[in-house]
Design a protein around this nucleic acid. Structure first.
Lengths: 263, 263
DNA sequence: GGGTATTTGTCCGTATGTATT
DNA sequence: AAATACATACGGACAAATACC
């Protein structure tokens, strides 16, 4: 083997984890014990553990020990649906259907200058004013997603004043915009990327401060009957507990179970 | 500040990167120089750099130095489309449309026992035989995705022998199954997750051997006119160069540009 | 090709701090 | 308070990769 010692130690431990000899949640030998077992220095053993930590196979708890990670039961979100329904309503009904309890904070409403990506989606020049409505969403009390919707500033002036109130819009914003401005949502485009979380997101989702766990960022641009973008919704989900489902054409239910699998 | 020294050094460098003082591709000071600049030991400086590496802000090249990462120009795949078209055909036309050149290896065909996740999707008991067709896909010569399609073993016996040949099926497998067996694809379900790459994937995509860059895993289950699953396609894409787009209802083209953005 | 300087990678030992039990 | 276990920080030595002459 030409590979360095810490990799060999990591490999040995990895095999024990993946073979099930070390089970999820179980404590690994301490650094001192591993040091004797593999005839290496403590620092080298620590390098092996850091490697496994980057692979999301183990986690360390100061004062306690090193443990095999427990995978979080993932939550699957179906992004396809009725082209005319709002996101909040869909998400909510979907979560309830799985017997979990959703909740969210009251929206935090601000008037901002549109940042680059939002301006592009709404076809505005960068810096144009938009109304931003930000919510934190939870499932069964644990942080699930951070969502911000952006609307043209003009909507509020043209009769949709409720957009500026820091309350849930009962029945959903889509329905409200239809009633107040005659805007009908006829379709949307979802755009999904993965990136490292920023500090705010890492803290809210209780993700490790290093960038190990990435987040999904979903841009949903909704279009009205004239083909103009009427809203952009940006939602951030941790990748370690979320999956997405899209259904096209005739698809029989129910959704598949979300169990683990390997290739 | 109660934070450890290596975090402070990392923070200082992070600010220089995000403010643009250190530009993408540019070399950072060497470990020796940083050691003097921050009055820390070489190992402490290295810890700071490892931290930035986990955040995907820098990369190290042995014998050369440490550099600010260059983001790869992402490629966006639209997963919604004609419910009756095959994946290969869609992917191909889509890539060509953006002026990039797709290519793929000849399929590697095997008869396997269905692994857990595939068996569930195809509604088989685990271990049932399936035909697996595996391809490597490239865009402009760089590795783009690994794709494996699974079909019932019985299909080949019932008149779709071409499934067993290690050649591209001209016109696509969907069309072929329609002509040979009368199976019509009427819809599909895409299921998207993110996980660490395995060793094979890391090597093919030239991803760093530690698990820094995750991969998308897309399970596409296609259904025929009787509502039965007729195929499962598993495609793996690196998250650092891929994005997905789904369109529901009436959505005006073209797709948005895939430029970078921050929240 | 060979040799040398530079730079990061691996490995060791030690000391001290911090979190948990 | 004491013991245990991981976290931070230092110093040193040699290996391996790269670039340059």
């Amino acid at each position: 083997m030409g590979s360095p010692m810490y990799r060999q130690i990591a490999e040995s431990l990895r095999e024990q984890i993946e073979s099930g000899k070390l089970k999820p949640g179980q404590q690994l030998p301490t650094e001192l014990e591993l040091r004797e077992e593999y005839n290496a220095s403590r620092n080298t053993v620590r390098d092996a553990i850091k490697w496994l930590m980057n692979l999301d196979l183990v986690e360390t708890r100061p004062g306690q020990g090193t443990f095999v990670v427990q995978k979080i039961a993932p939550f699957a979100t179906t992004l396809s649906g009725d082209p005319g329904s709002g996101d909040g309503v869909i998400y909510q009904s979907q979560v309830s259907k799985e017997g979990r309890t959703p909740s969210s904070t009251a929206p935090q409403v601000e008037i901002q200058n549109a940042m680059s990506a939002v301006a592009v989606e709404l076809r505005l020049s960068e810096g144009t004013q938009v109304v931003s409505r930000h919510e934190k969403r939870y499932i069964d009390g644990t942080p699930w997603s951070l969502q911000t919707s952006f609307y043209l500033r003009g909507f509020a002036a043209q009769g949709a004043e409720t957009l500026l109130f820091a309350d849930d819009i009962s029945g959903g914003a889509v329905k409200y915009l239809n009633e107040s401005l005659g805007l009908r949502q006829v379709g949307y485009r979802d755009w999904i990327t993965v990136r490292s979380p920023n500090a705010t997101e890492a803290e809210f989702f209780k993700l490790p401060a290093d960038g190990r766990v990435a987040v999904f960022e979903n841009f949903r641009t909704a279009f009205d009957q004239t083909g103009s973008p009427m809203r952009v919704t940006v939602t951030v989900f941790p990748t370690d507990r979320n999956q997405f489902i899209f259904e096209i054409g005739d698809v029989p239910g129910p959704q598949p179970s979300t169990e683990d699998h390997k290739s």
